[in-house]
Design a protein around this nucleic acid. Structure first.
Length: 563
RNA sequence: UGGGGUAUAGCCAAGUGGUAAGGCACAGGGUUUUGAUCCCUGCAUUCCCAGGUUCGAAUCCUGGUACCCCAGCCA
């Protein structure tokens, strides 16, 4: 999608081509106005991020750009105020600012009502008393045309009277609806006299008890776009066959503005689910621990996991924008966060699964401090002093009793470098009654301080991380893996929950961290050298008990090879 | 013959009649005190299929095929 790198980014997707062309012909007074219109009935996920980056991103590319954040709150039975606040937070976190362009569809309820009255007066809408079942029957099927409602020829005066009484609260929910009078024989089901208002005697989060009728999406959305003078109304593919209806309302009502709806393919990621229904189900049935579970594809979950706004924006740039029905590999996302954190994350030493090492030729009570840079390529990130002493912890995975020849780490008689410290040779192995290796007895080479090559020129192939036992901090670390085992959970007619990965979270309780991590900060990423990127858990971590989440592992060509 | 869409590599995706960009993945090589990073190199005689038009077709025409979406008083 990018034709050049970095700041010279120029995207040439079909929507931008269209906008550029419109600008060239001076359509819409050479303006570009978009909107991101979430329904406040759930948390935002990575799929919404695609839309946010598109709508907010695109207007920043043009001088005249403006993007509204508009809550599409036309259904009070599903929506609530908590979601509104959460969505605002997520949009800001992602890096976008709607400035003073915050709106709600409910802001236009009166105008929408007036438009409905206008439609009735044009004899283009009528009150229908068919029940839900009858309505379905009259609608016809995909193959067969529908038939006219018996109420279709109700008089304008009666329609107005009934509509006013619907709003006045005279009828129970579901008794009557207002329908557009279009064409029950249309091959497009959306045009078969769609419902535009229904009765819902419910308190609305924004308008309280002012209304007992609420407009439907198709009616409210195009008119809200028109009211806001949206130039390009970008939405996903499933609304493509609603476009004739979008245009019908605006044409019929002859609105001063007629925005153009353009559809693009929604994001689909493998090994995860994106539909709100499924995400709700995961949360409600406790398959995850809430919307902010780090395994969720929600923005709030990804944030907790350690994904940065920049990495998500980069992802949205890379995946492209087309009408193709595609499924992006999660590897692309992982690659984006690795790319971002590679330059930003402080490097630290942390042992996930400790194995005790005693250096037999190192003085008992001695402690020395070794200088270790926070980033191998960026000196401006500074350095810290790592305490080193006779008893250390190394990673269990860095030792094998009978290692294959290509294993560069520790084994009986083998020598490795302790990062920033010394060369270390394994002399013997201590086991418990069960035969488990519990300790390594080693020696170090005093001539390799700092990890340098000794005078005899001896080379060592592997470098491992470590932590001084007496100085280490103990912490909990949560290792996450993909939530589903199947690249396409729920494909076919399988229940997507069958594909849940039972090992999507692994909690390690005895992790040993270098002392500098005592002051680790929230919202900051750390690279635990050789293992991955981590961040403090923004819910469960406390100064007394640090809890880290693994954002993503480092690329590991050894793991790949050794399989 | 319900309607609306989409087909370019394992996954994305440029390409708009002039001889198949780029990214991810993958494979090989180099640098490296992270088996990371970084740096090279390779990776579609062919664009869903079949015909046709043309000096020339992924692009135009004709006919097929596959997949996705639509029958909420949801959005």
């Amino acid at each position: 999608m990018k034709t050049t790198n970095n700041n010279l980014t120029s995207k040439t997707d079909f929507i931008r081509q269209k906008i550029t062309a419109d600008l060239a012909t001076n359509k819409n007074q050479a303006q570009v106005i978009t909107r991101f219109p979430p329904e406040p009935n759930g948390y935002l996920h990575i799929g919404h991020a695609k839309s946010i980056c598109l709508n907010f991103g695109i207007v920043s590319e043009y001088q005249s750009g403006k993007c509204y954040l508009r809550f599409d709150d036309t259904n009070p039975s599903k929506e609530n105020i908590e979601y509104i606040e959460a969505i605002k937070n997520d949009v800001h976190w992602l890096g976008y600012d709607w400035k003073d362009n915050l709106r709600h569809t409910s802001d236009y309820f009166q105008q929408l009502y007036d438009y409905a009255i206008a439609l009735i007066k044009m004899d283009k809408a009528y009150i229908c008393s068919l029940t839900t079942e009858e309505m379905k029957e009259y609608r016809g099927t995909l193959q067969k045309p529908g038939k006219n409602s018996p109420d279709r020829n109700r008089s304008i005066a009666e329609n107005i009277n009934l509509f006013e009484r619907m709003q006045a609260g005279e009828f129970e929910d579901g008794k009557l609806v207002l329908r557009a009078k279009i064409d029950m024989g249309s091959p497009n089901i959306n045009m078969r006299d769609p419902i535009i208002y229904r009765i819902k005697k419910l308190s609305h989060p924004m308008t309280g008890d002012n209304w007992s009728i609420y407009p439907m999406y198709d009616f409210a959305h195009c008119l809200s776009d028109s009211i806001e003078d949206i130039t390009h109304s970008l939405c996903t593919l499933e609304f493509e066959d609603h476009r004739p209806l979008y245009d019908w309302f605006l044409d019929t009502l002859n609105t001063p503005k007629h925005p153009q709806q353009i559809e693009f393919a929604r994001l689909s990621l493998n090994f995860t689910v994106m539909s709100k229904r499924k995400l709700h189900e995961l949360v409600e049935n406790n398959h995850v621990n809430g919307w902010n579970d780090p395994r969720m594809p929600t923005l709030i979950g990804m944030r907790r996991r350690g994904y940065t706004p920049a990495s998500i924006r980069d992802f949205c740039d890379r995946i492209g924008l087309t009408k193709n029905d595609t499924q992006i590999e999660v590897g692309v996302l992982e690659n984006c966060i690795r790319g971002d954190l590679e330059t930003k994350a402080l490097r630290v030493l942390v042992v996930l699964k400790p194995l005790r090492v005693v250096i037999e030729n190192y003085p008992e009570a001695q402690v020395e401090y070794l200088d270790a840079p926070y980033h191998p390529k960026d000196a401006s990130m500074g350095s810290r002093q790592l305490p080193f002493s006779r008893v250390l912890y190394i990673e269990q995975d860095d030792f094998m009793e009978n290692p294959p020849k290509k294993f560069f780490r520790l084994g009986p008689g083998r020598e490795v470098r302790l990062r920033y410290a010394y060369f270390l040779t394994c002399q013997s192995v201590v086991k418990d009654e069960t035969g488990q290796v519990v300790e390594l007895r080693c020696t170090y080479d005093p001539q390799t301080k700092g990890g340098i090559t000794p005078p005899d020129g001896r080379k060592v192939k592997g470098t491992i991380h470590w932590v001084a036992a007496n100085h280490a901090i103990t912490a909990e670390i949560r290792l996450y893996d993909r939530l589903f085992n199947n690249p396409n959970p729920g494909a076919g007619n399988l229940d997507f929950k069958e594909a849940l990965n039972p090992n999507s979270i692994k909690v390690l309780n005895n992790c040993q961290l270098e002392p500098s991590l005592k002051t680790a900060e929230l919202e900051k990423s750390y690279q635990f050298e050789r293992t991955g990127y981590f961040c403090l858990d923004n819910i469960d971590s406390s100064p007394e008990k640090l809890v880290f989440n693994r954002t993503v592992t480092l690329r590991d060509s050894w793991a790949k090879k050794s399989k």
